[in-house]
């Protein structure tokens, strides 16, 4: 019987600094981890512990995978001290994937905030890989400052993809910034898709998700069509340890992506 707590070694192939405190790690696991967009992996930083992250690369190429990670605590700080060639541990995939079959033939309206664009990138790349199956893909992304934008080098390439429409905002601009200034909801005053039959996907800080979700509902999106990445303390990843409990859900098993219809009756889902 396999041991669900046992990580497999994964080698850091390269790293890319996205912002002063966000870095993308390209990892090569000893065995392929068969994740699908939306699922997550528990990453072990040897000697410092484990934390859950959603791969940010396409599930159509899984011999290596990317993880874009913000330095916030003990394990991630130790991870930032590692170099290409060093080994980490990985186990997964865990949780539910985005139900892409339900997205087919529809406009997909993706809203990200800060490092929240990391898991959305896996979704975005899966969508553009089979772009013919979907109507249009809108990506709305907000960061604190221009320096805090992740995937700066990739965004211009993504914008060139047919049927893809990207817009960005920053809370605080600099002298070179030519786009909107304000929190990400300032990009949502006009939503150029049919809200009643479109899919919205949101990932970012809880407070951002709260307001984006409200804006989507006000615009007419259906609660079952709004997919939200819920941040709870996912520790075991296998629905046992119970740290990630969110009302009737265990985020690690039922999520981490849940629809607004699933969580709307919870006392305060966006803590």
């Amino acid at each position: 019987m396999s041991n669900p707590y046992q990580p497999i070694p994964a080698t850091i192939l390269e790293t890319h600094d996205e912002t002063p405190n966000i870095r993308t790690f390209k990892l090569k696991p000893e065995r392929e981890i068969p994740f699908l967009a939306g699922q997550f992996v528990e990453l072990t930083v040897p000697g410092y512990g484990e934390a859950p992250f959603t791969p940010s690369s396409s599930h159509f190429k899984r011999d290596t995978f990317d993880m874009t990670i913000m330095k916030v605590g003990r394990a991630t700080s130790a991870l930032f001290d590692l170099k290409p060639g060093d080994r980490v541990g990985a186990r997964g995939p865990f949780g539910q994937r985005y139900p892409l079959e339900k997205f087919e033939g529809k406009d997909i309206y993706i809203v990200g905030g800060g490092v929240g664009l990391a898991p959305l990138r896996a979704l975005f790349l899966a969508l553009v890989h089979e772009i013919g199956k979907y109507q249009r893909i809108f990506l709305r992304y907000g960061a604190r400052t221009p320096a805090d934008i992740v995937y700066k080098h990739l965004l211009p390439e993504w914008q060139k993809i047919p049927k893809v429409d990207i817009d960005l905002s920053v809370d605080v601009s600099d002298e070179k910034w030519m786009k909107k200034v304000g929190v990400v909801t300032c990009l949502m005053d006009e939503i150029p898709c049919d809200e009643k039959s479109s899919i919205a996907v949101v990932c970012g800080p809880p407070i951002m998700m709260k307001f984006v979700n409200q804006k989507l509902l006000d615009a007419g999106f259906q609660g079952g069509d709004i997919y939200l990445s819920m941040e709870t303390n996912m520790s075991c990843g296998v629905g046992q340890c119970r740290h990630c409990r969110l009302g009737p859900y265990l985020t690690c098993k039922d999520g981490p992506v849940l629809t607004w219809d699933q969580i709307k009756d919870l006392e305060n889902p966006f803590v």
């Binding site: 707590y5 040897p46 410092y48 605590g73 941040e231 303390n233 520790s235 340890c241 740290h243």
Partner: peptide, 30 residues
Amino acid sequence: LLYDQAKGAGVERTRTWDACYEAAYARVGG
């Protein structure tokens, strides 16, 4: 609770009973 400790050149992962009354029980990394 799962926690890791360095042991020699490697790492040992231990599972220990946890208590949902613990203040940090549901706290996330951020």
